[in-house]
Nucleic acid binder design. Structure first.
Lengths: 143, 143
DNA sequence: CCGTATCCAAGGGGATACTG
DNA sequence: CAGTATCCCCTTGGATACGG
C-alpha cells in the first residue's frame, strides 16, 4: 500500500535566504527607486523629481541602502556645484529585470485588481457571519 | 544636424499603475505569504506555523488584504472545530510566478550581496569626505 | 546641489487576553 | 481553530532648518 507522502513544507525562517533577499526590496520605496534608476545613470535631483512625493530623506536612505548591497553605484564629482550620479550595478541590473516584470504585471492587472476590490468591499457578509455564530453556539454548549 | 533627443523620463506618480501595483506587495509580509501559500491550499494554522515569527494579527491582515485584491481565496468550513482554507486565485498565481523569480534571485545572490555589504561597511570614506569639504570651502568663499 | 539633523505625528506591528 | 480587541511601544517617514 502506498502511503501518500505528506508534503513536508519548508519553514520560512527569519534567517533563510528567501527572507533575507525579499527584505532587500520589500520596503516602501525600494522597488520604485530601482525602476526610476532604470536604464541610465541619474543624478540625485533627477531621481527626486521623477519619483513624485518621495522626500530627500527617504530617497537618500534607499539609495544608500541599495549601495550598501551593491545594487547601485554612487559617483561623486568634485565640481561646483556638487554633482552625484547613481546607476545600477551589474548585480542591480539582474534584479531590475525581475522588478520590471512586477511593473508589467501591475500595468496589466492593477485595474482588474481594483475593480474586484470594489466588489469585495460591497459584499454583504452578514449571512455567513450568522451561520458561524449559530455553529459556535452549538460548540460552546457541547463543551 | 541631428539634435540628440533628450530622453523624456516618465514621472512615477502616486496614482500611476506601476505604483499602485507595487504597493500591493511591497509590504513587510505580503510576498512571504504568497510564497508560503505556494502550490497548495493551506489552513490558517499551517501558514502561521510555516512563516516563522509572523503574528496571527499580521497574518490575518495580509491574508485579508490579498483577498480584497482577489489574489487569494478564503473558504470557511462550517465544522467543529472551525477550519479555514486559503489558496491563491488564478490572478494570484500569475503574481506568484514573479515572486518566485525574486525568491530564486535571493537564493542565488543574497550571500554575495551580504558579503559586499560587509566590505562596504568596512570601507574608509574619510579621504573622499575631506576632498568634498575642501571643495565646499572654495565654494562658500566664492559665493 | 546634495544631502544631514532634529523634531514630531501617525501608524505598523508585537503581546496578551478574550470571542465567534 | 481561527481569529478579534486592546494596549502600547517604537519605528517609519514627513517637515523644516541647517551643513558639507
Amino acid at each position: 500500500m502506498v502511503t501518500r507522502k505528506q508534503h513536508e513544507e519548508p519553514i520560512i525562517r527569519p534567517d533563510c535566504r528567501t527572507r533575507r533577499g525579499l527584505e532587500l526590496i520589500a520596503a516602501q520605496w525600494s522597488m520604485l527607486v530601482v525602476v526610476a534608476l532604470g536604464e541610465e545613470t541619474k543624478r540625485f535631483s533627477q531621481l527626486h523629481a521623477q519619483i513624485a512625493g518621495i522626500s530627500k530623506k527617504m530617497l537618500t536612505q534607499v539609495l544608500r541602502e541599495l549601495e550598501r548591497n551593491s545594487l547601485d553605484k554612487r559617483v561623486v564629482y568634485l565640481v561646483i556645484p556638487p554633482m552625484v550620479e547613481y546607476s545600477l550595478t551589474p548585480l542591480g541590473l539582474t534584479l531590475r529585470e525581475l522588478i520590471y516584470a512586477l511593473r508589467d504585471w501591475s500595468e496589466r492587472y492593477i485595474e482588474e485588481v481594483e475593480r474586484r476590490r470594489t466588489e469585495y468591499d460591497q459584499q454583504d457578509k452578514t449571512l455567513l457571519q450568522e451561520q458561524i455564530m449559530a455553529l459556535v453556539q452549538q460548540w460552546t454548549e457541547a463543551s
